[in-house]
Nucleic acid binder design. Structure first.
Lengths: 347, 347
DNA sequence: GTGAAAGCGCTAACAG
DNA sequence: CTGTTAGCGCTTTCAC
């Protein structure tokens, strides 16, 4: 490894001078500056970031902690965050907590011990730990991503999940549907509750009530794939009912579940969208590949990721002065072919 | 930040003693040890890894560099590497080079300046840079992932792509197909050439030759989605031919392309697998969600990722003594419903 | 303008 | 067994 020392020796100056030209410090003689620079080039010297960080109390490193990477929504975030961070001169250290609070804590800890300048965290969602809770063992700037709570202690970036529910509801209503069902996912997740609330409220506004039996609180653990949850949901909605009592529209709380729903409906010779309309959630690339292409609600992932980085950097820069922002991004309805007009005589 | 100094003061010992109990150094008096430990607990002291790394010349950090994260094969790798590294006491810094050689170089550099203990790299594939080439600006242990070249300078882990080609060919032959086509992807990528060679050889063994017109060298840039490439391939194979001259079996060089092929075939009222059999490549989760579920060839991603980490750690440990291993993993044929027996009278 | 010296938090050699 | 000292590579006073 070539160090400042080597450069200094070659240039015939002191170490601190080298440091000065490196940091573009004022007042270095033009001649010495040139000397040093040519020595740097000749030796191909690159400042060591660890030593820099130890001294300067800034590592130019941010940490990203995600539940996992398999779902596309997560891996996209990871990529977008890396890209943005990189653009801003930061590197990214990545951790995956697999929804295990212990692991999450461990990662936060590890990152701090590595002197990260800040952390972007999508918290485990089983435990509804508050931001205050988190703040307890976090002493670096932090941005909370994708969870449905606001905080006056740190920045947060999330989707407007309530709005997503409204959008799904309105789309169904506009198409003339009256008997509408949905999957809710695990109700202990705040953001899923919000979506459900939005959905419900959106329907209520048009005097449609959604019965308890038409809400499938499918579990979401990593053992049960989303597709299977979708198939199960269809069982709940259809089994033991007369055909005329089938819902004609179903909103799934994510695209994988929607795919499962469509799959199961097909198997039962129920057509999508002629007999039943389906809306998904997330706008994964696969939604455009299945038959029929899925109407779904997209999250502006790139913006959200970019925003998270920007907020974090602001937080890093402003320190105590930073006034926490709680950003909620607009979801977007993407209409494809899994939704259609309600027609009475079909079912 | 609480440091060793604080612990030392509270425990009434010297800094080095604290360091000793931390590192489980031999010969520390039982009593002092207990003192120090309780002080550590009381202050909730956590050793700073940056300072440790600067001194000990080991950061317990590895770097992972991937082309991108959007394709599932990549994000899975990232997750598996993180998990394995974490299990082994390492953290992971992640970079994405988007197939830009400049960016790749920059990342390697940045990681080294951060004193990573080693790097796992999936190189950009446009430029056929050799491992020697890479070695030039890399002075930490490195494992090459997923590229089809061996190296006597560093470890490599890759799929046996030739074998994958053989497998696809044999499956088609076994089903009775004679007129067989495939997509080859960009031919400047060695691993894709290998797949094609395997495919060709597998067919040749059964006296089947694949004509140039039945090989679609679709481009793979990030502008053209795989699905579109697949649709284009179908055009090449079918347009301007008599129906009886259609190939009855197509191997796609990845699942997305396969999906595009199936989509286009459906649009032309050609049935899969009754009229045309399709095999994909990669075994992405979506393969089980489309209709018909896709027969494909899977890579043992978890094993490959785990192996990469293990090799890298071995390389880190053994240093100069490490004898580079070039691992080739077996692909696996996953038979679903997009392939069927050839029957003459169908088309 | 530039060098010498101190120190970031930690480990390791050397004395005692 | 334990404290003192030096030093990892860098920045930053403080003198000159």
């Amino acid at each position: 490894m070539v160090t400042q020392k080597d450069v200094a020796k070659l240039a015939g100056v002191s170490i601190s001078t080298v440091s000065r030209v490196l940091n573009g410090s004022s007042l270095v003689d033009g001649e010495t500056k040139k000397n040093v620079e040519s020595a740097i080039k000749k030796l191909n010297y690159k400042p060591n970031l660890v030593a820099y960080g130890l001294r300067a109390k800034s590592s130019k490193l941010i940490g990203l902690i995600l539940p996992e990477l398999v779902h596309q929504a997560y891996s996209m975030i990871a990529q977008y965050v890396e890209t943005r961070a990189s653009d801003k001169g930061y590197s990214m250290i990545l951790g995956v907590h697999r929804n295990d609070p212990e692991c999450e804590k461990w990662l936060i800890d590890d990152f701090q011990r590595r002197n990260v300048d800040g952390i972007i965290l999508q918290p485990v969602h089983d435990e509804p730990h508050t931001s205050a809770n988190l703040k307890e063992y976090t002493r670096v700037p932090m941005v909370l991503y994708g969870q449905s709570f606001s905080s006056d202690q740190m920045g947060t970036v999330q989707l407007d999940n309530y709005k997503a529910g409204i959008m799904a509801a309105e789309h169904f209503v506009k198409l003339g549907h009256r008997h509408i069902a949905c999957t809710a996912g695990p109700i202990n997740m705040e953001y899923l509750r919000e979506r459900l609330n939005g959905f419900r409220d959106g329907l209520t506004k048009h005097n449609i009530v959604i019965s308890q039996q038409d809400i499938c609180a499918c579990e979401l653990n990593y053992q049960v794939p989303g597709v299977v949850s979708g198939q199960r949901a269809v069982m709940q909605f259809l089994d033991g009912r007369d055909r005329k009592d089938y819902p004609t529209a179903i909103w799934a709380h994510n695209d994988l579940v929607a795919v499962g729903i469509i799959k199961e409906l097909h198997q039962r010779k129920i057509r999508v969208p002629e007999d039943v309309s389906v809306i998904g959630m997330d706008n994964m690339v696969l939604t455009d590949m299945i038959y029929p292409p899925l109407t779904t609600i997209g999250q502006p992932l790139e913006q959200m990721a970019t925003m998270s980085v920007d907020i974090l950097l602001k937080e890093i820069e402003l320190k105590e002065q930073y006034v926490p922002e709680n950003i909620r991004m607009e979801p977007q309805l993407i209409i494809r072919q899994s939704t259609g007009k309600y027609s009475e005589n079909v079912i």
